[in-house]
Design a protein around this nucleic acid. Sequence first.
DNA 1: ATCACGCTTGCATCCGTATGCAAAAACGTT
DNA 2: AACGTTTTTGCATACGGATGCAAGCGTGAT
Lengths: 344, 344
Amino acid sequence: MAARTQPEAAAPPRPAGVPVTARELARHLGVSQSMVSRAFSPGASIAPEMRARVLRAAEELGYRPNVIAAALSRRRSSIVAIVMAELTNPFYPAVLERLTEALQAAGLQSLLFTVPPGQPADSCLPLLRQYHVDAVVITSASLTSAGAEEWLGDGRAAVLFNRTAAGPTPLDSVACDNLGGGRAAAEALLARGCSRLAFVAGRADTSTSQDRERGFHAALAERGLLPPLRVEAGDFSYEAGHRAARALAGRADGIFFANDILALGGLDALRHDAGLSVPEDVAVIGFDDIPMGAWPAYRLTTLRQPVAAMVARTVELLRARLGGTAGPPRSERLPAELVQRRSA
Amino acid sequence: MAARTQPEAAAPPRPAGVPVTARELARHLGVSQSMVSRAFSPGASIAPEMRARVLRAAEELGYRPNVIAAALSRRRSSIVAIVMAELTNPFYPAVLERLTEALQAAGLQSLLFTVPPGQPADSCLPLLRQYHVDAVVITSASLTSAGAEEWLGDGRAAVLFNRTAAGPTPLDSVACDNLGGGRAAAEALLARGCSRLAFVAGRADTSTSQDRERGFHAALAERGLLPPLRVEAGDFSYEAGHRAARALAGRADGIFFANDILALGGLDALRHDAGLSVPEDVAVIGFDDIPMGAWPAYRLTTLRQPVAAMVARTVELLRARLGGTAGPPRSERLPAELVQRRSA
DNA sequence: ATCACGCTTGCATCCGTATGCAAAAACGTT
DNA sequence: AACGTTTTTGCATACGGATGCAAGCGTGAT
């Protein structure tokens, strides 16, 4: 206690930019460095008054624990890797923004990795290991099962976002109910009286495209209808949607695109290239609900992914895993919501 | 050398997921841990054969230096923070993607921070300090001069991307020649024969909006023309552009929007709300060249920012600063290119 | 009053790598 | 062959905090 008022024995005025360390703070308070450490560890064995005293002094001296050192010692970095491809699809930046915010709010930081579209996220694993990230959120890409097993070795978590793994997997995943969304799309088109339906697939190897297609098919099959026409765009891009729609012009009166960016490309092709009017000649439905779909030039009917809820669930899952609350891998499916606009 | 063939004295089969350390690798080779460290430090004092031997063994055993430990020891993390706001403006995800790639290629990782639009990046500084990031790239946000001075204390670098600081500043910045772009916009509109020009500002406190406006004004002033009408959208968003254009409908025959996302909103307002045709009744020019501007629904004439070059320059600047190649702060200005499409 | 027990605290050590310094080895010179 | 240089190598320690363990303290029960 005396230490508070005693002048520090030759405390050198620290140069700006050199951070205060726990040891220095401890010396200043006349306590041990352990106490400083414990003051900042929730649940540690420390008297409430001591903690308050340390925290107050930390505030005064501008002490902040060095996360790097903590990571080394605790073998936990509080860093979450976000692996993304397709940042050019506007759906993902929105996800990224919210995810980063949610992680920051949970005391975690986001290290961003990008992979070329279509590649599995496996190529990032060595880097992730090097950076000792605690967890990884993989979105717009997937992980091979070999990669998954390699990763989930010890206490490290992984969540697939907007993707599901094929077959049994040890990975958690959060996505929206793509099957249900596909059905809803079919129902909406049928309700409009469309009779010649078509589906435009994105990348054929993605669970999103596959599930949406399966739901779409299932709804038709239940009504005893023929399966829809099918075009594979090959890619989740405006240009791919544009090409796909040109191939369908005149052959369908209701098109369900695997996502919005495809649908926007499709809409433009139908209107500007094929000279058709939407929704009179052909109805169009997309998936995601990206902002541009709502613009007057498009007024795209679509299925909205509950991004906020998906992000929240993702962070919850991560924290549970990191906290050691094990349990079997979970596959969360949040419902998609039909947003009726002009295009259908 | 003998160690290579001698069986390890009771080397426990390491559990999967626990990484090999430099010490273990060293023991395996019968050399000191320092040698392993030096084998991985370019320019360190080590015999070429020794380095080769260590690297080969590292490959075999799957050793990768622990970046966290290295960061602690060297007081350098090889992590660059990217501070962003406005991820919903499609220009920035594109920047982010390329920046991350370029940094990865330079052996740096990107830690992503988001700040609310309009806020200075200062609120991130404590976190940046905690994470001991080496450098920060600030885009779609700025830093107060107090924040800048605080940050540039010791060896830490900062680059403003697509922003310039007001007044003298110790910060490097990379942006495109917004003034020149503004002039080019004016010239293009005048060349079309527009006589009632208008400028739509974004956030008034951003250097991008200000410089583009100043260039636009300057070109008009040089020709002895009156200054343009001016509307302040208040925000770089589609909706803001929409509102601004409605206010201008009928009062201008050539509008320069501070960026593309504003211009797209404006275009839709002019066409769908005001019933005007573009470019017949009113010509429109944007800035950035986001992908959507090229879509058939818009065909927006715009000024293209040389993103790839800007990113490359940014990474160069960062590396120079981190390498200690000091020099006075630089302000890089890369030329914008007029992309002629239908809207003007 | 005595003892057992629980809560606080400090001590010592560890996390995995980098690096200054001194010892050792390799090389060139006269 | 002896000696001065220049490389290479190993040793020891620092980086900043976390944590198991034992010592110190205060409490209640007997």
